[in-house]
Computed example of a mutant assay.
Amino acid sequence: MPLTHIAMRAGKPQAYRQAIFDGLYQAMRETFDVPEDDQFMTISEHDADNFRYGSRYLDIARSDDLVLIQLTVSNTRSEAQKRALFRRIAERLAESPGIRPEDVFVSLVEVPKVNWSLGHGLAQYG
């Protein structure tokens, strides 16, 4: 049950943003065994004054097309699954909407399964 937050510069069309949602969801289905219809995602758009990044950090040439992706996930995946997810997200977003791999920044936040309530005030996984 990933909870996905995406931050990016404002100004991209709706189809571009939809392609990001679709690509992320497909990458998670392929590498993290995310079930069908398990989609909880937001995109926040920021003007230049409110979007800051290291354009050369770790010798990666980033551009204003940088997409910051934070996934909150249960702490149940292996290191191999995480590496596969990072790779597949970059591949999927390069295919559509055409984001350069250098502009795909992903962070995983892992939490115990008991930390999720998906509705009704219950801890469905705990």
Rank of each mutant, 00 (worst) to 15 (best):
H5D: 01
I6F: 03
A7Q: 10
R9E: 12
G11W: 03
Q14D: 02
Q14P: 00
A15R: 13
A15P: 08
Y16I: 08
Y16E: 02
R17E: 09
A19T: 01
D22L: 10
G23I: 02
Y25G: 03
Q26G: 06
Q26C: 02
A27G: 09
M28L: 14
M28A: 14
M28H: 06
R29V: 14
R29M: 14
E30I: 11
T31I: 01
V34Q: 00
V34S: 04
E36H: 15
E36I: 15
D37R: 15
D37P: 06
D38K: 12
D38M: 06
F40I: 03
F40L: 13
F40C: 04
E45H: 05
H46K: 15
F51N: 13
Y53I: 13
Y53G: 07
G54E: 05
G54Q: 11
G54Y: 11
R56F: 12
L58Y: 14
L58D: 13
D59C: 04
D59R: 14
I60Y: 08
A61W: 13
A61M: 12
S63T: 15
V67C: 14
I69F: 08
L71F: 04
T72A: 03
V73M: 14
R77C: 04
R77N: 04
K82R: 07
R83V: 10
R83F: 03
L85P: 00
I89Y: 09
E91A: 00
L93V: 02
L93K: 00
A94F: 04
A94P: 07
E95M: 01
E95L: 06
E95H: 11
S96A: 12
P97Y: 04
P97Q: 12
E102M: 00
E102R: 11
F105Q: 04
S107P: 09
S107D: 02
L108I: 13
V109E: 07
V111Y: 02
V111C: 02
V111L: 00
V114N: 05
N115Q: 02
W116Q: 03
S117C: 09
G119A: 00
H120W: 06
Q124K: 06
Q124W: 06
Y125I: 04
Y125W: 03
G126D: 01
